[in-house]
Structure formats: structure tokens, C-alpha cells
Nucleic acid binder design. Structure first.
Lengths: 223, 223
DNA sequence: CCTCTTGTGTGATTTAGTCACAGACAATTT
DNA sequence: AAATTGTCTGTGACTAAATCACACAAGAGG
């Protein structure tokens, strides 16, 4: 893997010295993984530490009746922080990691990871940074679930989806349910209400925002 | 502070070298804090990194209507991992830290913390360890809230309280509610049911377990 | 013994989650 | 073009949990 390529994928390599770069090149195994495959299931032992070079992975909790609760996503340049925690504390993986978009994954062996943690401070920082980011994220999810109403959570989801995708939001009610941690029917009913308020129009696999200001107003009204 | 004292408080100092120990002695400020004081509130900036030498601190999320949701507790030898994350990522504290039992707190300045992270690997490990422990804990709370019924969560609380305290559990319904993240009335009603099943007897500020086997049986029946 | 604070009990109501289906839409096959 | 299939959406009925609004009880301190 060329140096230029590395820099693009993992930002912190821009600051890395020769030793770390060489070490990285020598010890990393690249692998392609198709969308739909499970990188790990609840209870799996962790042997390799993965960095996502391209693609998208969703990490979520699975309930006994198939309910899902998204914890975080891994984007290019990021890594699965739960895997690191598991590797270092010798626990098993406490969630499910599912590839959402075809991935190129860089794998690093446990022993190598440990060695690098002792050797390279930059490496420590990189991992530390993601670990606290995920912790903040999970605490935020906990806050949403504990203290905010379904209506607010759906409006917030729509708002951020609107910012990312624009007026046409490509998603299903089921997918929204998984993101905000509730049941599909609940999402359907709440969306129907918003349609009656002329904030949006519902279609199969698509939501069209018709009045983004009203959406914003409704949100600030409720919270 | 003597070396012997340090070892007792923070286990990893047993393995520390002279440099770290000296550095620690030179840069740490000890402070006493009374039960009931708030170490930090939501949105506070973090300036010092605290290690709890004695006492007990509860870190929790506070909802808009005063609802509380315990995230984790800090026991002697442990530190407030959220504070570290905040210090290093320059975010504000995302929760409330309340002293439950009188504390002796060791304070370390941000600049010193950063220096040590670069210098001492043991120090990195210590922080890393707590960070992932809290992350696992918060994910576990999330799982409980999302997927488990109130009855199960109360039975699990009682089980672990029984293991810690024995047949007489000194607590209030409100405190249980805060621990498992629900409302006081919900706890009262569920406990009343358990009393009707002759699993326990309710008193003011105290719950007496009368049939621990039945408690265990009920728990395995439900989950 | 009275007063005040803190803790508990309970009905009524609202919100959210679960269960059980009925259709609806779109892609593919016949 | 019609039939088949899988996925997505809508909705009523029911259950679980949270919220609201009190009444009352127990114990601490004067």
C-alpha cells in the first residue's frame, strides 16, 4: 500500500514517522468484505483489529425478539473500537457488526496492536480518540431513549437526514425504527401524523419533505 | 503522600517506576469533598483530572423533567473517565457527577495529564482500561433499557443487592428507579407485586427478601 | 405530642411497544 | 399480460410503561 493511499484512508498517518509507516505496511492484511456479511456476532472472540479503508459497517445490539439498536457506524479511516476494547480486556464482542456497504478492511493482529500501543504515541491517541467518541455517542443514544419522546426522536432523525440527503429521503420505516431504537409500527404511525400536518409525503421506501420550516418549527415546539 | 498509600489507592502504582511515582507526588493536589456536592454539572468545562482516593461518586444523566439515569459510579482508585475524554477532546462534561459518600479526590492538571500520556505507558493502559469498562457498562445499560422488561430489571437489581447486602436491602423505591432508569411509581407497583408473591416484604427505606430462591426462580422464568 | 420531611400507595390518563393481519407496490417469472 | 413473490406500509386491539395528581404513613426533630 502506498504512503499516499494510507494518508487518504487514515488521517493521522499524515503525522506518522517512518517507523510507524513501515511497521504498518509490514503487518497489515487487506481484505474485501461484501455488504450483508457479519463481521462479528454477539459473543464472538476478537482476534484481529480492523480498520475500515472503504465501505460502511453498522454496529448494533440485538434483542431477544430480533429488535435492533444501532450503536454506531464505522466509516472509512475509522475502526471498530469495541473490538479493541475486547482484544485488550479479553472479553467477547458485545454486539453485532454488519457490513452495510462493500468494504475493504485492514486487519492487524492482536500482538501487533499491543506492541504498537507501547511504541507509538500517535497510535494511542488515534484509538483513544475513537473510544471516547463512541462513548459520547452511546451516552447520547441513552439520553435520547430515556428522556425524549418518539415524536422528537423521529423529527430529529428527519432533520439530520434532510441535511444529508435533501428533500427526498431514501429510507424505510423499519430502518428509521432501528436507528432510533423503537418498533416499525410506531414509526409508521408517527410519520402518518406528520403527513397529515403537511410536513412530508410518504412513499414506498422514500419520504419527501414538503415543508422543512414546519418540520423545524415542530421540533423546537416539542423539545 | 507515601508510596505505600499510593499503592493502596491506585493498584497500578505497584508496577510504576520511580519517575512516574515522583512525578505523581509532585503534581497531585489532594482535596476533600463532602457528600452531596456536585463535582460537575452538565456542560461544565473540565480543567482537572480527578482520581478518587476514598468515597463514592455517582455519574448520571439528568432529563429535562428531573429524571435521572445512572451511568456509572467511581470507586476508590478509579477516576472519572468522562472527564478525561472531555479534557482531551475539549468538550464539556455531558452528565452530572454527584458525591454520594465523602471523598478524598486527587487532582491532576490537564497539561500534566497530557504529558504523562506521552511519557508513561502504564498510565495509558490505566485510562484505556477504565474507558472501555465504562463503555461496556453504558452499552449494557442501553441493552437493559431497550430490551428488558421493568420486572426483570427490578428482579436483577434485587438479586445483586441481595448478594451485596443480604436479606435486608437498605434503599428507597426512588433510588431503585434512578438505578434502572424508570419512574418511582413503576418501581413501587412492581415491588408490591413481588410482595404479594411472598418474595419480599416492603418497609420504609428497606426491602426484606423473604424467599431468595423464589426471587431467583422468578427471574429465570421471565428472561 | 405535634410538625415536617421523606417515603409509599394508588387511580386515571397518556404514550409507547407488541401482536396480528390486510393490503399495496414493484420486480421477476410464466 | 397475468401471476407470483418479497418487501413495505397501514391499522385495530391489546399490553406495558410513564406521567399526573393526590392521599396517606412513618419517622425525625423540636
Amino acid at each position: 500500500m502506498s504512503e499516499i493511499e494510507l494518508n487518504k484512508v487514515v488521517p493521522f498517518f499524515a503525522e506518522a514517522d517512518e517507523n510507524l509507516l513501515n511497521d504498518f505496511r509490514d503487518n497489515v492484511v487487506a481484505q474485501r468484505v461484501k455488504a450483508g456479511t457479519y463481521l462479528s456476532m454477539e459473543g464472538d472472540p476478537c482476534n484481529y483489529f480492523p480498520i475500515i479503508k472503504s465501505g460502511l459497517v453498522r454496529v448494533f445490539k440485538l434483542g431477544s425478539k430480533g429488535q435492533e439498536m444501532t450503536l454506531y457506524r464505522i466509516e472509512p479511516g475509522q475502526s471498530c473500537i469495541l473490538t479493541i476494547s475486547c482484544l485488550l480486556s479479553k472479553k467477547t464482542f458485545p454486539a453485532v457488526a454488519l457490513v452495510e456497504e462493500d468494504c475493504e478492511v485492514l486487519l492487524i493482529q492482536e500482538s501487533v496492536l499491543r506492541e504498537w500501543l507501547g511504541k507509538y504515541n500517535l497510535w494511542n491517541q488515534y484509538i483513544f480518540d475513537y473510544l471516547s467518541r463512541v462513548l459520547f455517542n452511546v451516552i447520547n443514544i441513552l439520553e435520547n431513549i430515556s428522556f425524549k419522546s418518539i415524536d422528537i426522536r423521529i423529527l430529529e432523525f428527519l432533520k439530520s437526514a434532510f441535511i444529508k440527503e435533501g428533500y427526498e429521503i431514501q429510507t424505510t420505516h423499519q430502518k428509521i425504527a432501528i436507528e432510533i431504537g423503537t418498533a416499525r409500527e410506531v414509526v409508521s404511525r408517527s410519520l402518518k401524523q406528520l403527513e397529515k400536518q403537511n410536513i412530508l409525503r410518504l412513499h414506498r421506501g422514500k419520504i419527501v419533505v414538503t415543508d422543512s420550516e414546519k418540520l423545524q418549527k415542530e421540533l423546537s415546539l416539542l423539545q
